[in-house]
Design a protein around this nucleic acid. Structure first.
Lengths: 135, 135
DNA sequence: CTTGACCTTCCAGCGACGGGAAGGTGTAAA
DNA sequence: TTTACACCTTCCCGTCGCTGGAAGGTCAAG
């Protein structure tokens, strides 16, 4: 069995910055870490696994709040998979909403940029649009 | 000539919340508003136009900082349109980076969600992925 | 005269950390 | 042994772009 890791080692193992690990603990997302005699936080296999779970969920764009819910579902053997799926679906919808909003933005910006000759002249359709947008 | 508007009226005209207008003034993005005798802020045509410019730029996703630069370029008759175009292009790149990141997320989430039967059983590939992501 | 809708300033909080100070600890080399 | 250095601790402030709320002034209508 591997020995416990300090916060710096846990950070390297999981990719979660030490500051962020402390923050997660402080806000109650993860349980209080064990402590060594000198007061250093210690992370065993389970704690590392938990941190990796959190990291993966954050990387998938779940809010810290949602990660809390996911952790609760993870820990609860008797939950229905439909609960998890619903949470994931709501998250997917948020992502899709963001994407379509950004797509509109991108198209507008492309059009604007293409319409600007971008040389030393002062005339600039981009600023004109900002000042008096069409319709 | 239209008379000056109070902050609430300006807010309705421009779609920028009154709180936000004060915030923009406080942070120096827009100049200090004129004041009536009773201390109320007053907004004339020019100020309204400025606020609309800011609103449009924010809606296009420019950061408040970038909006400051755009305002400076707008006010400067002798700037080259290429400066504006460069700023817009950098912004477009940021949007596109965000979009492609979100597209990856969306695909991953879709796959995960599709793999989860989402019924009353506890078995859930979404949680399994979070706990032990493939490669 | 009172109600209610405005307006003013100021202070605090959101999410999700990151920076940096001030100080304790652990180890390895000079 | 001392000293250097990397690590750990707690604490508080700053980020971005607002938003909410408290405490108070102002104004028009009923």
């Amino acid at each position: 069995m591997g020995r416990s890791l300090t916060i710096g080692e846990a950070s390297k193992q999981t990719g979660v910055p030490a500051k962020t690990i402390r923050y997660y603990e402080e806000t109650g997302l993860i349980p209080r870490a064990e402590r060594a005699e000198n007061g250093y936080r210690l992370y065993g296999e389970k704690a590392i696994h938990l941190l990796k779970f959190v990291k993966r969920a954050r990387d998938l764009g779940f809010s810290v709040h949602d990660v809390g819910n996911l952790l609760a579902l993870w820990a609860n053997d008797s939950r229905a998979s439909s609960e998890v799926k619903e949470l994931a679906k709501r998250h997917l919808e948020q992502i899709e909403t963001k994407i379509s909003g950004l797509n509109v933005l991108r198209n507008t910006m492309r059009t604007l940029i293409d319409s600007c000759h971008g040389d030393s002249r002062a005339d600039c359709p981009i600023l004109e649009d900002l000042a008096t947008p069409k319709e």
